Amino acid sequence: MANYKPDLSCQSKFIPINFSEQILPGTFEYALCYIIENKLDLSGFDAWYHNDKTGAAAYSPAVMLKIILLGYAHGLISSRRIAKACEHNILFMSVSGDVQPHNNGWHGFL
């Protein structure tokens, strides 16, 4: 009987990942991050937040915009699916800086 190595594809593995190396120049994700970080003025969002002295820290509008647009580009239109992608998809983790918003974090964006 043939002796094959076992298929371990359904097991989890801890792998060190450098998120900044996942977004390669020339890709949609790179262009998305560059435009949002360098070309858009998102300072209008700052007026909405009054949590500098009290309250929890808010998710960055730039990060939320990147996550939403990346989700839409991948056909994800549900906030739950986008949130799940931020937890499980390396590309979403890289674009978001490993921010994983839950469903309550989407108010004002979707």
Rank of each mutant, 00 (worst) to 15 (best):
M1L: 13
N3H: 11
N3V: 13
N3D: 15
K5W: 11
K5L: 14
P6S: 04
D7F: 09
L8C: 12
S9L: 05
C10A: 14
Q11F: 15
S12A: 12
K13P: 05
K13G: 05
K13V: 14
I15H: 02
P16K: 14
P16H: 12
N18K: 11
F19C: 02
S20H: 09
Q22Y: 05
I23V: 06
L24T: 10
P25H: 04
G26S: 02
G26K: 05
T27M: 01
F28Y: 06
F28K: 04
F28E: 04
F28I: 00
E29N: 07
Y30A: 12
Y30D: 11
A31H: 13
L32V: 04
L32P: 02
C33I: 05
Y34D: 06
Y34M: 05
I35F: 13
I35H: 01
I36E: 06
E37T: 02
N38P: 08
N38V: 06
N38L: 00
N38K: 10
K39C: 11
L40Y: 01
L42E: 08
L42G: 09
S43K: 06
S43V: 02
S43R: 07
F45S: 01
W48N: 12
Y49W: 04
Y49G: 06
H50S: 13
H50V: 03
N51A: 06
N51V: 09
N51Y: 04
D52N: 12
D52I: 10
K53F: 13
K53I: 10
K53R: 11
T54Q: 11
T54H: 08
T54M: 05
A56E: 14
A56F: 08
A56P: 03
A56S: 13
Y59K: 02
Y59P: 03
S60T: 09
P61K: 02
A62Y: 04
V63K: 04
M64C: 09
L65C: 02
L65H: 01
L65A: 08
K66H: 07
K66A: 10
I67N: 01
I68S: 01
I68V: 12
L70Q: 01
L70W: 00
L70D: 01
G71F: 03
Y72W: 05
A73R: 09
A73T: 10
H74G: 09
H74I: 00
G75N: 00
G75W: 07
I77M: 13
I77F: 14
R80Y: 06
R80L: 03
R80A: 13
R81N: 11
R81Y: 05
R81C: 05
R81S: 11
I82W: 00
I82K: 03
K84M: 00
A85F: 01
A85I: 10
A85R: 01
C86N: 08
C86V: 05
C86Y: 08
N89V: 04
L91V: 14
L91N: 03
F92Q: 00
M93V: 00
S94Q: 09
S96Y: 06
D98S: 12
V99C: 12
V99I: 10
Q100S: 12
G105H: 10
G105D: 13
H107E: 15
H107R: 15
H107W: 11
F109Y: 15
F109W: 15
F109E: 09
F109M: 15
L110K: 15
L110E: 11
L110A: 15
